[in-house]
Design a binder for these strands. Structure first.
Length: 577
RNA sequence: CGGGAUGUAGCGCAGCUUGGUAGCGCACCUCGCUUGGGACGAGGGGGUCGCAGGUUCAAAUCCUGUCAUCCCGACCA
């Protein structure tokens, strides 16, 4: 490809609406163009990158025994009603009507479709196991798309679905996919960590996420990990042992008493007023889960992890209650306390979920639904309710690994892949069954496995860049090399460059010839920004019969003969396959 | 949906306070000059100033409404 004809417009400045590195770089270097929030055109360079990633995914999925197909993007409501998700998926599911007023939706994921495909085709245990996948645009109407390709509404995803006769088969395929995923990301130039996670709207029992750990602020997930053993988990799923699990307020309170605690609306106020540590306060938070009130009880120095709380009550949607909602809930229970003084005592018609940290508290401080008062020196028998304990706590760095007891660390991660054990979550309600050797029907045991293709591309940028631009890993770069004649009016330079370019093309290397009548600085800046892994420059060193070969990743520059430059690049490209 | 901000050429911005019919840099076209890290000079093309009302002789500018976008919180590949 000749640079003069390549459809790319680099920008001298970063777009003002970009926040994270990958978005800034991809927009400035002419890879993407925004059409609407979270909706981007993939310009030719971007499309080449995405196709490279797709091909790596394809090769590894095929090698792992999966078969590619392509399902419809627009889906009828009926299937979603069969699985029960039409009502619970929420606003991320883009719903629309066709001309006959039939309800449809844009596919955010394809469990329903693949399950219906499977039940029509997979009738016998002899046909199982099967793993089917597709690479396709998905649409999720995210509340707030941001970070460019990292959180688009329309994005490219590889989604695979496995069907087995039993759990054992699923476990095996799950392992198989985990291995394939690690390989895929490695080939894309990304080191990933496989972490335990919550299974969210997709559902199922076990799930893991593949996280790219970056030092940029683009990582949206907190990942907790242990340096001593293999434990790692997303913050929405991480568990830990508390270093100081048993707390007793007996040093502060000799006996149980109701105390005046005026204007202590926050835990901090209360600590200051009573001159006590927050560890001996029982904190009560009011949440709304699926429109119903839930009280969350937790030791006050710890925070509630909302996903865990939601799961504790089998909910789909959670948010903290507004002041007005709290007032209404209090009124329904015959109280009028304001936030800061709320507690479980006397609360009816609300779910009360206590974190495990509450279990070992003694002689603590708790709200009793009276404004400006707290009960101090309280114990569980004073709460007037039998508590149900769950782990709803947000883990913090420094807490101890649940497996080996060593301190946990936290880091930011970009989730590029996710694997789930679905079990019969879809096959059962959708009556997707096979016949065993005795002629008995059983629902398939399913798994599903996603990779964000466009997100992986963005993550690759987050992991490989410098001040001058992108440093694509060779395997996913839009082109392998740019050949730069410094001055196209210099006959020797131009002839040498064209010669190198043609040799590279002949050898199957993806090369660009920068044949633009631009000054050297412009060409070099563009080459760095776009991120060609190699740059071969035909310039003044030709007087010694040499060209320059620059490696973008390391910045290393060598003066070598044109022949050596060609062989060097060819060798590198052959090396990635 | 709550909190904050912004809409002026493909990109980045000024002009608005104090109304007088739109400007700068980059990019684009032409010519000259230049050719190893985003040169320079001259000339040129491109904008119903988000949209709709209103005030006024006159609105990018003032008023009202509306739409959109971006950032911070609840979603997820």
């Amino acid at each position: 490809m000749k640079m003069s004809k390549l459809f790319v417009q680099t920008q001298r400045e970063f777009p003002s609406d970009a926040e994270v590195i990958s978005h800034k770089m991809l927009a400035r270097a002419g890879y993407i163009r925004k059409l609407a929030p979270g909706v981007y055109t993939f310009l030719p360079l971007m499309w080449r990158v995405l196709k490279k990633i797709e091909n790596i995914v394809r090769q590894e999925m095929d090698a792992a025994g999966a078969q590619e197909l392509l399902m419809p993007f627009v889906q009828p409501k009926e299937l979603w009603e069969e699985s029960g998700r039409w009502d619970v998926y929420g606003k991320e599911l883009m719903r629309l009507k066709d001309r006959h007023n039939r309800d449809m939706c844009l596919g955010p994921t394809h469990e329903e479709i693949i399950t219906s495909v499977a039940r029509d085709g997979l009738k016998s245990y002899k046909q199982l196991p099967v793993n089917l996948y597709q690479i396709q645009s998905k649409f999720r109407d995210e509340i707030r798309p941001r970070y460019g390709l990292l959180r688009g509404r329309e994005f490219i995803m590889k989604d695979a679905y496995s069907f087995d006769v039993d759990e054992k088969g699923l476990d095996k395929e799950y392992e198989n996919m985990a291995k394939a995923y690690t390989k895929i990301f490695k080939r894309c130039g990304l080191d990933t960590k496989m972490v335990q996670s919550d299974s969210g709207a997709i559902g199922g029992s076990v799930s893991h996420e593949f996280m790219v750990i970056t030092d940029t602020d683009a990582g949206e997930n907190d990942v907790f990990y242990c340096n001593e053993c293999d434990y790692s988990a997303n913050s929405n799923h991480a568990v830990s042992k508390l270093p100081d699990a048993v707390v007793d307020g007996k040093d502060y309170f000799k006996e149980k008493a109701v105390k005046d605690t005026p204007n202590t609306f926050s835990i901090e106020d209360l600590c200051n007023f009573l001159k006590i540590p927050s560890t001996i306060i029982l904190k009560t938070l009011v949440y709304i889960v699926d429109k119903k009130p839930v009280l969350a009880l937790i030791r006050a120095d710890k925070a509630v992890e909302e996903t865990k709380l939601m799961n504790a009550v089998n909910g789909n949607d959670i948010r903290i209650a507004s002041a007005a909602e709290i007032a209404e809930i209090m009124e329904n229970n015959g109280f009028n306390a304001v936030p800061g003084f709320i507690g479980p005592k006397g609360m009816k018609n609300v779910s009360i979920i206590a974190d495990e940290t509450v279990k070992d508290m003694k002689n603590f401080v708790v709200g009793i639904n009276e404004t400006d008062k707290h009960l101090v020196g309280a114990n569980h028998s004073d709460l007037g309710v039998e508590l149900k304990y769950f782990d709803i706590r947000l883990v913090e760095q420094g807490e101890l690994c649940p497996q080996c007891g060593k301190p946990l660390f936290v880091t930011k991660g970009i989730e590029v892949g996710n694997i789930f054990k679905l079990g019969t979550k879809y096959s059962k309600p959708m009556n997707a069954v096979y016949l065993d050797e005795n002629g008995k029907t059983h629902p398939y045991i399913m798994g599903c496995y996603g990779i964000g293709i466009s997100r992986t591309a963005a993550a690759a940028v987050e992991a490989h860049y410098d001040d001058d631009g992108i440093k694509w890993p060779l395997a996913v770069a839009p082109y392998h090399v740019v050949v730069v004649p410094v001055n196209i009016n210099d006959e020797l330079q131009m002839k040498t460059a064209v010669n190198i370019y043609e040799q590279l093309l002949k050898a199957g290397v993806e090369a660009v010839l920068d044949d633009r009548d631009e000054r050297a600085g412009v060409k070099f800046k563009d080459a760095d920004l776009i991120g060609f892994p190699f740059r071969i420059t035909a310039g003044k060193t030709l007087q010694e019969g040499l060209v320059e070969c620059k490696v973008r990743e390391s910045g290393e520059v060598t003066k070598i003969t044109p022949e050596d430059a060609v062989s060097k690049v060819i060798a590198a490209v052959r090396n990635i396959g």
